[in-house]
Design a binder for these strands. Structure first.
Lengths: 230, 230
DNA sequence: CGCTGTATTGACAACGTTCAACGGTTGTGG
DNA sequence: CCACAACCGTTGAACGTTGTCAATACAGCG
């Protein structure tokens, strides 16, 4: 499987590596394609690979023993994902599936420590990646602890616009299929409440809805809402 | 500052290092003592050191721009803490203060990458540590998203009993001063609700309260409560 | 064309917060 | 050593945000 160096070179993860090192790492990778709805890995199964998303969009979900579901995170192009093994886990803590046609690289987890030991820069990068993820998690905890639902949903939509937004006439289009249920699972509420909020916002001209679609019309006012100003 | 190897040797973080490596790392450490109420580092200040708790108990809090406070985590003996720099942050994201008389080691953050590059085992350990922390955060998010307050508080108390419990006749004593307000900040609720819950539990013989004190009398029934069985 | 998944909306209940008052304990300073 | 302040905890009552239940509508797809 031949993967061109130029594809990954712009990514922060590889920015400090030499061409040789990159080629060395890429030579062990396999690339795969996931159609919308396909799962990449499943919660509870052995973590045999870790991945890098090149293209598309993934949702990572967790299901609780009693059947409730939450969205742990959305994976954007350039993100590492599914490196459970690095965190001393044997199985995947969640399920990843494609929210849009996606392209990704995969490595056997057995190579992780080999890479890290051979390439300390990778270790530092990985630490930073997980560090960012930890910070995101804390942000989410802080929001859920202290903010009312409307602010949380506003924040979530803003983050989506930033990470997955595509400019369009009249606003910023969230560039993959996302349902009210998804947003509810990202913010710890119910799809009913989300639906009500989005309807209200649409009435004020802040956003424009649609089936699995979302367009942010007024980023500024939405930001103010997220900051708690009525 | 002479720190004996035997103090840290049993800790998972050092378990895979040779005596020489441990000594090398310890030679750069300074040890300090914090009286109850003392702060170890303050949110927003430059992250000049990272730490290891030897003894005692710390609480790490975050204050939101509008003055709300949450408890990010409780630091137990043997835990690394305050390694913001490793996560590509320049300042501490929270404030750490002693909930009990505490003893800890400190290293200048400038040595972090030096240690990691010289000792890949440390990098792997650190990754695992942060990985665990990330998992804890996700657990908390999942609980806050899907569970009602009573279950969340029950879980929080159980975790405290597990991590900071000391056997006592009649139950498990939480081994440091903890207020209802603290528990509220750990679970995303108010001290009023926590107070009501603990009172109700005390009536049922599950726990025994007191000013800044908590004794778990019936671990089994509390666990059942945490699992959602009424 | 009917089925399935998604979305909207209303009515209602409730869980938990907010507001308020009070009691008890600890620690401090005169 | 006592008085008092500061802090922690308890409890009641009222309110409101949000979840639950339910009915309907609509889009996409086989």
């Amino acid at each position: 499987m031949r993967i061109d160096r130029s594809i990954v070179k712009p990514l922060p993860l590889f920015s400090k590596m030499s061409d040789g090192e990159i080629d060395q790492i890429l030579s062990h990778a396999t690339s795969s394609r996931a159609a919308q709805g396909d799962t990449v890995f499943v919660q509870g199964t052995p973590a045999n690979h870790f991945f890098l998303l090149l293209n598309g969009r993934l949702k990572v979900t967790q299901v609780t023993p009693d059947g409730q579901q939450i969205i742990v995170r959305v994976v954007h192009p350039g993100d590492l994902f599914g490196f459970a093994k690095a965190l001393q886990r044997l199985d995947y803590p969640g399920t990843a599936f494609a929210a849009a046609e996606s392209l990704y690289l995969a490595w056997p987890t057995s190579l992780w420590s080999f890479f890290v030991e051979q390439n300390p820069v990778l270790a530092v990068s990985a630490l930073q990646t997980i560090g960012n993820r930890l910070e995101e998690a804390h942000t989410r905890i802080r929001e859920m602890s202290t903010q009312e639902v409307e602010r949380r949903v506003a924040h979530a939509v803003l983050r989506l616009a930033e990470k997955a937004g595509r400019a369009e006439d009249g606003g910023i289009r969230i560039d993959f299929q996302i349902s009210r249920q998804d947003i509810a699972e990202m913010t710890g509420t119910t799809l009913h409440t989300v639906s009500r909020l989005l309807s209200a916002w649409e009435g004020k001209g802040l956003v424009e809805g649609g089936r699995q679609k979302l367009l942010v019309r007024d980023l500024k006012r939405l930001s103010r809402l997220a900051e708690g100003e009525k």
